[in-house]
Each structure stands twice: as structure tokens, then as C-alpha cells.
Write a protein that binds this DNA or RNA. Structure first.
Length: 274
DNA sequence: AACGGAACCTGAAAGC
DNA sequence: TGCTTTCAGGTTCCGT
């Protein structure tokens, strides 16, 4: 599902498809994706004829800056995706928005409707965007700063990794993989990590994101976790399989309602808190 | 304030 | 085979 790497691929595609072109048509079928829902006709009117000046990404959010000064924010939720198709073609399943440029339609599809589209005017802010912490890919993570912000957090490091105000763009998959790379027990309290461990974790977050992005990069957007595709991850979704490092059987636990897979040996908490 | 859990959704996969 | 149940995660909301 869309975490930082997938959102980044979506943003790159949007840049490629929409850059310097004007919207000749805008379709916004009613759905809860558009917020607020009642604004559909106004949003359509404000988008029509506009040109995209830039596509930004922070964490799991995408922002299309328009020549009018407006900005269209897009969050992909669990199943959102921007795709391109000919304007003459049939609508794709679960199409929630379509931006037409020349002979192509750039459409947002989202079966489960967890995603979101929101238009903001010049000078208006989206609180969720403002609340995002540093983005591991574009800003990089400062280990000392992270260490300070983990102090006093009693929740597990796995749960805290999903906090977008601390690690913008990290989701369940990247968080799970990063902890494996860093050899940290996901059950450890966030505050208990040593400076060396936070440094390893910061490094690992960068590594797993870069690694996933590499697999997805190419002419086509490939969601690496798509159904039917082979699992590209080292531990995520591999409970019961041997650890790729030490062959110990990988375990699955639930933290904050989310599954975590880890190696009970490589990620053992033998290095006690301090 | 911080935490846990439910809710929001649908499709794929697993279970029976 | 085909029906039923479970699971999947990002975010928000609500109760403790």
C-alpha cells in the first residue's frame, strides 16, 4: 500500500504527465474522497483551464501547485493511485477524479476510498501537511534530533515509527523493514533506544526506502506490494519463514493494531534499555 | 496527555 | 466448487 516510496512514484508520474499542461477537462464524480464533499462543482471550476506549476511530496502527501495559486492536495490512503489513460477509453474501475490534458486523462482511482483530495487557495494551509515531520528522502533524518524527540515516549518504537510528525512517510511496511535492518526489537520502548541504535534506525529507514524505490522505479509505476506480485521484502509478510540473516523462524506480532514481523534472534532485546 | 481500539472501505486470500 | 471469514493497512475519532 502506498507508503513513501509508492507516493514518490505517483508524484514523479504526475510531474511527467501534467507538467506545463493545462486541464482541458475535470471530472469529479461524487465520493467521500473529495473534501469537503459539497465543493465538487466549485473545485471543478477552479481546476478547469489551470496549469500545473509543480508537484511536491511530503511524507505520504502530494501537492499539485497550480498557476492560479491554488493547490490540490492528494493523499492515497490505502488503495489510491494516479493512473493515465486515453480520454477516449472507458473509465477505470473506482475512478474518483479525472484531469484531462490534451488527449490523455490523468485519473485518481481508489477502491476503498481511504484517500483524499482537497483544494486549498493561495495562502490557505492544510493542517495535515503542516504537521508532517522531516521527510526521510527529501529532508533526511537527524539522529540527534530524533533521539531527543523519542525521549519520554513509552510506546513501542514500532508504533512511534508510524508517527507522521516524526517520520513523515514511514508506514507499516517500511517501519517493519527498517527495524529488521537496524536489528532492533520492535517491542522496545521508543525512549529506551540508545544513540547508537537511533543512528542505526535512521540509516535503516533511508536504506529500506531507497531499496523499495529502486524496485519500483522504471517506465511504469509498479506497486511493489501489489496482489499477485512476488513479495520483495526481507521480513514483511514473511512470518514463519526463515530469517534471511540467521534462518531463525520469523515471528508475527500485533502492535497498535498493525502486524509486525521480526526475527526474534537478530532483533533480540538483549541490549537492555538505558 | 497518552494510549487502545473501533471505524471507515473493498478485494484478495484463506478457511471450510 | 462456492460460500464465509479473515486480513490488509492510513488516518481519524472516541472513550478511558
Amino acid at each position: 500500500m502506498p507508503e513513501l516510496p509508492e507516493v514518490e512514484i505517483n508524484a514523479r508520474n504526475l510531474r511527467r504527465w501534467l507538467g506545463r499542461k493545462s486541464f482541458t477537462g475535470v471530472t469529479l464524480p461524487p465520493s467521500r474522497v473529495l473534501r469537503p464533499a459539497a465543493s465538487a462543482e466549485e473545485v471543478r471550476a477552479r481546476l478547469e483551464g489551470r496549469r500545473v506549476q509543480g508537484v511536491d511530496r511530503r511524507g505520504k502527501w502530494i501537492r499539485l501547485r497550480l498557476d492560479s495559486g491554488d493547490a490540490l492536495y492528494s493523499h492515497l490512503g490505502m488503495t489510491g493511485k494516479w493512473v493515465e489513460r486515453p480520454t477516449t477509453g472507458a473509465p477505470l474501475p473506482h475512478e474518483r477524479a479525472c484531469l484531462t490534458v490534451a488527449e490523455r486523462a490523468v485519473c485518481y482511482t481508489d477502491p476503498r476510498l481511504f484517500g483524499r483530495l482537497q483544494l486549498k487557495g493561495r495562502g490557505e494551509r492544510l493542517p495535515e501537511w503542516e504537521a508532517l515531520g522531516p521527510d526521510p528522502l527529501t529532508d533526511g533524518l537527524d539522529a540527534a534530533l530524533i533521539k531527543a524527540r523519542l525521549a519520554g515516549k513509552r510506546r513501542s518504537i514500532k508504533e512511534v515509527l508510524l508517527d507522521q510528525s516524526l517520520f513523515a512517510g514511514v508506514g507499516n511496511v517500511q517501519g517493519t523493514e527498517a527495524l529488521f535492518f537496524a536489528r532492533i526489537d520492535p517491542r522496545r520502548s521508543a525512549a529506551s533506544l540508545t544513540s547508537a541504535e537511533v543512528e542505526r534506525l535512521v540509516e535503516a529507514v533511508g536504506q529500506t526506502i531507497a531499496r523499495t524505490l529502486e524496485k519500483e522505479s522504471g517506465p511504469k509505476l509498479v506497486y511493489v506490494e501489489e496482489a499477485g506480485a512476488p513479495n520483495p521484502f526481507l521480513v514483511y509478510g514473511r512470518e514463519g519463514e526463515p530469517c534471511p540473516r540467521c534462518a531463525t523462524r520469523l515471528e508475527r506480532i500485533v502492535q497498535g493494531g498493525r502486524a509486525t514481523v521480526f526475527c526474534p534472534r537478530c532483533q533480540a532485546a538483549h541490549r537492555r534499555p538505558r
